[in-house]
Simulated scan of single mutants.
Amino acid sequence: MTPSPPTASADVPGIPLDAVAFYRELESSNSREWWAANKQRYAVSVQEPMAHLGDVLTEEFGEPKLFRPNRDVRFSKNKAPYKDHQGLFVPTSARMGWYVQVGADGLRTAGGFYASESDQLARYRASVADELVGARLMKIVDTLSDSGFDIGGDVLATRPRGIPADHPRLELLRHRTLSASRDHGTPDWLEAEEVAQRVRADWAAMRPLIEWCDQYVGATEKPGRR
């Protein structure tokens, strides 16, 4: 598909294909000089359409946060100054909620909890181990998987201490974080108003997972980490 030119964002009711082209070019030109030359293009093809998408979904899911494009390189070996995608996040509890991004591979939706403190992890594992609550999560995850979502997160290579090898929810207990995601790529509807309908449908399908995480994991109670 040929990317649309970076004209006024109002000309494209969805996410311009130029947003994908922008990040594909950024992969080989991630410098402040290149960004300065393409700053207006970023605003028109990426920032404004993603902000509009968030506005459309706010009433149903909550106030979104559009992440800044700059990377924090202070403690990273990778000194590339800019992120290789534009993310938008709607939080419920701290470090969990709904997510959508556009990058070089196209559009991606996701949801779940993406980081955990020790108290959150303890609550998560206790809930998964509970016969009723854990079975409810298993059903949610199985439904999402059967619907085409990828189930991911930070997963231990071995089982947690004290968990038997034959535990019926061992795979879930190995998770330190838990998410569902779907990669859409660059479909015909990316530039159309339908993009909001597609993201809305994915997020609605993820709602049981988000609500489970919000209820049984919740925000950390550690001072300064909320």
Rank of each mutant, 00 (worst) to 15 (best):
E25D: 13
A36H: 14
S28Y: 08
S29A: 13
E59R: 14
D18W: 06
W34E: 07
W35R: 14
F61M: 08
K39M: 08
P49W: 04
M50H: 03
L57A: 07
S29T: 06
P64D: 08
V56N: 02
L53R: 01
S45R: 10
H52W: 02
Y23F: 15
E59D: 14
D55A: 12
E33H: 09
V44H: 07
N38H: 15
V46R: 02
K39C: 03
N38W: 10
S28A: 13
Q47I: 00
G62K: 13
A36P: 01
E60L: 12
Q40L: 05
E25C: 01
M50N: 00
P49K: 00
W34P: 10
A43V: 14
E59N: 09
A51R: 11
P49G: 03
N38S: 07
K65S: 13
E60W: 06
E60T: 15
F61R: 08
S45L: 06
F61N: 04
L53D: 00
E63S: 13
R41L: 08
E59Q: 12
G62Y: 12
S45F: 10
P64F: 12
L53G: 00
A21T: 10
K39D: 08
E48L: 00
R24W: 05
R24P: 03
L66P: 07
P64Q: 12
P16H: 06
F61P: 08
F22C: 11
G54R: 02
E25W: 02
V46C: 05
W34K: 12
N38V: 04
W35S: 08
Q40D: 13
A21D: 15
G54S: 03
V20M: 09
Q47A: 09
T58E: 15
G54I: 01
V46I: 11
K65I: 12
W34T: 08
L53T: 00
R32K: 15
Q47F: 02
F67N: 02
N38P: 03
V44Q: 11
L57F: 02
T58Q: 14
N30I: 04
S29M: 02
A19V: 07
W35A: 12
R24A: 01
A36I: 01
F67A: 11
F61L: 10
K39I: 02
Q47N: 10
Y42T: 04
A36S: 15
A51C: 00
E48C: 00
L57E: 03
V44I: 03
E48D: 08
K39T: 09
Q40G: 15
A19P: 05
A19D: 01
W34V: 06
G54W: 07
A43N: 10
V46W: 03
L53F: 02
Q47K: 14
D55R: 10
E25N: 11
L53S: 01
S31Q: 09
E60Q: 15
S31I: 00
N30W: 02
T58L: 08
P16R: 12
L17E: 06
Y42K: 10
G54C: 02
E27D: 11
